[in-house]
């Protein structure tokens, strides 16, 4: 396949009993690229994301990182490969501080299991600073606005070096103003930090502002893969609405 892809999926197929969630989907992601993964409900977007993140494994087909076949058997494996995800349901801990949320599941402790708050705070301060996010570190997350919570969730995914970030509807629960901030953050991740992003979204008009390319799924199949410069919001919506029927004319 294309040599400029650093991450690829080849012929990915995943079924749940009689339901074919993904059928022979092949795709690639370039460095510093934002790809919009779009499609109607039950198109298979979340299933594909879950497999890239190692939450589920494909029945057939393989993923490739830098041309090498990789078996992503768990989220831990994905993280080691430099893949991480920001989940739709704002997977956060409302009663705990920003620092604890970002270090959730990997709190730094010495060999007696005593936590090292100083080290964690310093790392989070540095991380938020690099991302240009301004949030007081000891604030409880339940006292933050939806937009700030999403920033915490994104920061958490970037705690370790990430090459590919999966974002499932990162702006679903946010106000218009908050959405713009998150989209700006997403653009910064690409241009300043050199991270590639797969962005799952419903609102094509919004997604259109930040992506470089669209991959359209319909009923488990990939029906379009178009550079943004070659298409328009209208066309993408038309492809989604008409599903596979417009496949040929669209490409």
């Amino acid at each position: 396949m294309n040599e400029s892809y650093f991450f690829e999926g080849r012929e990915i197929t995943k079924t749940y009993g009689p339901v074919i969630a993904n059928y022979r989907i092949s795709f690639g992601i370039k460095r510093k690229e934002i790809v919009g993964l779009v499609g109607d409900n039950a198109a298979g977007k979340s299933t594909l994301i879950k497999q890239i993140m190692g939450v589920e494994q494909p029945d057939e087909g393989d993923f490739y990182m830098d041309g090498k076949c990789v078996k992503i058997t768990s989220p831990m494996v994905a993280k080691k490969l430099g893949i991480n995800a920001v989940y739709q349901e704002l997977a956060i801990f409302p009663h705990l501080s920003v620092v604890e949320n970002i270090f959730a599941g990997e709190l730094i402790a010495n060999r007696f299991q005593i936590l090292d708050w100083k080290a964690m705070k310093a790392k989070v301060a540095d991380l938020l600073n690099r991302l240009r996010i301004e949030i007081p570190l000891n604030t409880l997350v339940r006292n933050l606005s939806g937009g700030k919570r999403q920033e915490v969730a994104i920061a958490r995914a970037l705690l370790h070096d990430v090459r590919l970030l999966l974002m499932d509807e990162p702006t679903a629960a946010l106000s218009v103003k908050e959405r713009e901030k998150i989209f700006q953050l997403i653009l910064d991740l690409k241009t300043i930090h050199g991270i590639s992003i797969i962005l799952v979204g419903h609102n094509i008009e919004e997604v259109f502002q930040v992506v470089d390319r669209f991959i359209v799924l319909s009923r488990g199949r990939k029906i379009a893969d178009i550079e943004k410069s070659q298409t328009s919001v209208k066309e993408i919506v038309a492809i989604i609405v008409h599903g596979g029927q417009n496949e040929l004319s669209a490409i």
Partner: peptide, 21 residues
């Protein structure tokens, strides 16, 4: 202490606790 502190994570959001490992 980490194994004790984790009680808060599990009680605050059990689904997220699982997702974070």
């Amino acid at each position: 202490v980490k194994p004790f502190r984790e009680f808060y994570f599990v009680g605050s959001n059990v689904t997220s606790a699982r997702l974070t490992g």
